[in-house]
Amino acid sequence: MSPSVIFAPDMRRLYLAMILALLAGCGPTQVKVEGSFPTPLMEPLPLKMGVWYPEAFRNHEFFDDAKSRGESSWVVDTGEAQVAMWDTLLAGMFKELVHMKGMPAPEQMNPVVDAVLIPYVDELQYSIPQHTNVKVYEIWMRYRFALVTTGGQPIAEWTMSAYGKTPTAFLRSDQAAVNLAAVMALRDAGANFATGFHRVPEVAAWRESRRGGKARPATKTTAEGASPGGRQP
C-alpha cells in the first residue's frame, strides 16, 4: 500500500475541516444575549399575576429586516435573556407570579390568577458603529403587552419601547458590545414597565374596579402608544 493511499482519507478530512472553517467565517455573526438582571426594589403589587411567554417570545432572535436569516450579517438571540429578565422583574413586582401552562383561553386548563400578562416583541432595531459612524452600539425594541383573564378575556393591551446603548471600548469585540447593548435595552424595558405599569389607563381602571369589588367586564381595551415613561408610581 502506497503512503498516498494511507494518508488520502486524512488529507480529505483536513481539506473538509479547512473548507468548513472558511464557510463558518462567511456566516453571520451570532450573539446569544447573556446577562444578569437585578430584582426590582419596590413594594410588590398585591396581585397574583400569571405570565405566558409565547413561543416567538421565548425563542426571540433578530436579524436584518431586509434580509433572510441566512443572509443577515448579525443574528442575535435574545429569547433566553428576555425570559430571565421578565421572570426576575415580575417576581419582584407582584405579590405572586405564576407561570401559565398554556395560552390563556376558555378551554385551556391554567392555574387561577388575577390576570395573565402576555409579552410580545413587536419590533427590534439595532445599529453598530460601522452603520452610523457614531461610536455607540444601540438596540431599540418595541414591546406589546396583553393583560388577559385566565380564560383569555382581554383586560388591557398597550405598547412600550426600550432602548439600550453601549460605547465602543478598547479590546471589546462587536459581539460583546451588542450583547451589552441588548442587556441595557432589557434593563430599560424592565425599568419602563416597573415604573409605568400602574399608569396604563386600562390597567389602572382594572385595579380600581378590583379595589371597588366590582366584577370587571371583560372588554378589550387598547392603549396603543401608552408608553408610560413615568418615573414614580
Partner: peptide, 23 residues
C-alpha cells in the same frame, strides 16, 4: 436600587431625591 437609577429613571435634579425617598 434597580430600577430607580437607570438612564430612563435616574433623578436629574437634587429635588428628585425627595420623590425617590417617598418609596
Amino acid at each position: 436600587l434597580y430600577p430607580w437609577f437607570e438612564p430612563r429613571t435616574a433623578p436629574l435634579h437634587p429635588a428628585d431625591i425627595e420623590r425617590l425617598l417617598q418609596q
